[in-house]
Every structure is written in C-alpha cells, then in structure tokens.
Simulated scan of single mutants.
Amino acid sequence: MHSGTSSVLAEPLDAYVRRRARSALALSDGEATTAAVGLLRGCRGAGDQTRTVCWWLTAEGRPTMIDDEDGSDPLTATAECLQALTHLITAPATRALFDVARASILERRTDVSEDVEKRLFRHAPPRPLVLGPLAPVVEPVPTATTPHAPGEGLLALVDADLSDAIRSAARDLRDRLRASRALRLTLSALGGTAVAVVAVLAFSAPESGSSSASSVVESDAIASPVASTVETEPRVPLSDDVVEAARALLARASSCAVGEHCSSDVWEDGEQTGDALIPVDEATRIELIDDFGGVTVVRVGDPGTGQYVTLVSRNDRWLVRAVRTIADQPS
C-alpha cells in the first residue's frame, strides 16, 4: 500500500457518501468545491493510468487518492466519486458544475478540468467536508386515531361503571325533560353552562339496549415499563479515556474478525470497512492522533508499520468506522 500524502486517513470516500446520504445534512457548496477540486487535481496528478486506486478522506475532510489493488483506474475511480457526490447536492448550479467536472474526466479534457476548477472557486469558497457526527434521519411513525362520536371522549375519561350510571341518569333526565315543561323552564334558569353539560351527557348517550365499549386499564400495566430489547452482545461504552476505550473496542473487533457474530456491535455499518484489523491486546501500542468531537482517529501498532483507525461515538458507545494500513511518510 502506498499513499501520496502524509495526512491521517479518516474514512473511504464511498463509505462517507453512504453515511452522508442517510443524514439530513446536504452537501454545502463550499464542501462541494473542496471535494471536486481535490478529485480533479488528484486525477490529473495520478500519472500512470494503469494503477488501481481508491479515494479516501483525510482527517481534515479532504479527498486523497490511495493505491488499492482492489480499486479502479484513476479516471474511473474519480468519475464514480463525482457522480456519487452529485446525489448529495441540492443546488442546481453546483450539480451542473459536477456534471461538467465528471465529463472532463471521462473525456480526458485537462483544459476543461482546469477551467471547471476555477469556476468552482468562483462559485463558492472551499470548506472541509463535515466528517461527523452525522445523525441518520428517523422517519416519524404515523399513529392511527379512532374518531369518537360526540360526547364519547368525555365519558371515556371515567370508570366504566360510572359512565354506565351517567348514561342511565342521562336517559332518565331526557325522558323527564320531554314530559315536563316545568322542569325544562327550571333548567333554563340555571344558566347556559349547566344546560350545555346536561345536553352533552343526555343526548350523546346511546339509547337503551346499546352498549359502549370501554377499556379498563390495570394498575399493574400502568406501573410496568415496556420491556426493552435485551442485548446479547457486550458493547464498548463511551469513556473519558479514549485510548483505553479504543483498546477494548479494537480487541473485540479483532476477535470478531475470526468468527464471532458481533459485527454489528463493533463496526458502524455492521461490517468491516477498510483493511483487515491487526490483532489488538493489552500490550498493543495505541496512540490518539486526533479527536473531532464524536469522531476520533487512533494509530495502532508501531509507527512505521501500524494502522490508522477511525472511531465514532454512536448511541453512547464507540464503533469502528474504518481501518487503513499505511506506512508513515518520511518528513
């Protein structure tokens, strides 16, 4: 593996695009400028077009090209990234510039590529891509409502036996009102509020012989919380000591790689992303490289032969986002 940059690598660009697409945060024009210009310049400077490469994001939120035996040639890899990023953009003018940029790569038009780069800078000043945290969008679950007949909402608030008694009294009062003009005049003298309450109860109550279903809630059911899902696998919680939390998580991740069914508890996307993680135990050297608030990069192993691992906090626990084996560049 070889990298053309000494920057710390944070995440594969294609994995970032999938994660960003699940969030509510659209790609800003400034981020689009950074992404497109980095891709265009990297592609023009790739040299040997028979290389197989992939694109990663650095810890500074900028794209960088990395040799990868499972990747594509520089032109194809760059065009695919530009197309994927276009789906994250909402501004029509910015999307149009990305389309021109992608066409310049596919047609190998260096002059067009350089021109669209200048247009991007005029369109919006560059800004680093937001690495995280990016909370996924949660769609609200619609709740079904049952329409009530007039007056049913009031009676539903009382005990079933009491509501039956109210209905019985209301029916009796209604019959007496119909039979006695004197009683009607007496109720009129009590004022509009009393009449309104009596009317709601009397004339919304069902006729004799009909029934109204009411629900009696047991007190035990109210007091008992809804049972939560029991976790069958241990998870690594957040900790003020990021290095020790990283050690516990990576030890579990390295053991998970040899057969345990625990991928969803250690990897952000539920499966391994990037290179195979080296074995981690109590003696393994782990060094904190940078902390972006919810996204942390650590170096695992010896400085010359180790790995950069990106960790992310999610739901009060740590997860592994990406692993990259890369030799440190000489200063």
Rank of each mutant, 00 (worst) to 15 (best):
V130S: 14
V137F: 11
L155Y: 05
S104G: 07
L154T: 11
L154Q: 11
E139N: 08
R95A: 15
R102Y: 07
G153S: 13
G153M: 10
T64H: 11
P74N: 02
L75S: 07
D70E: 14
L88V: 01
T90P: 01
D68R: 07
R167F: 00
E117T: 15
D67G: 09
T86N: 06
D99A: 15
L162Q: 12
D99Y: 04
A160Y: 00
D68T: 06
R109V: 00
T76D: 10
R95K: 12
L120T: 03
F98D: 04
V112K: 07
A77E: 08
P125K: 08
P125C: 07
E80P: 00
T145D: 08
T94E: 08
E107Q: 15
D159L: 08
A91K: 13
L131G: 01
G153R: 14
T76P: 04
R167H: 02
R119C: 10
V116W: 01
V137E: 05
S113C: 10
M65T: 04
P92V: 07
D70V: 05
A144M: 10
A170I: 01
A77V: 03
A135C: 03
A77G: 03
A170Q: 02
R109S: 14
A160N: 02
A93Q: 15
I105W: 04
F98E: 05
P147L: 05
L85Y: 05
T76G: 05
D67K: 05
P147M: 06
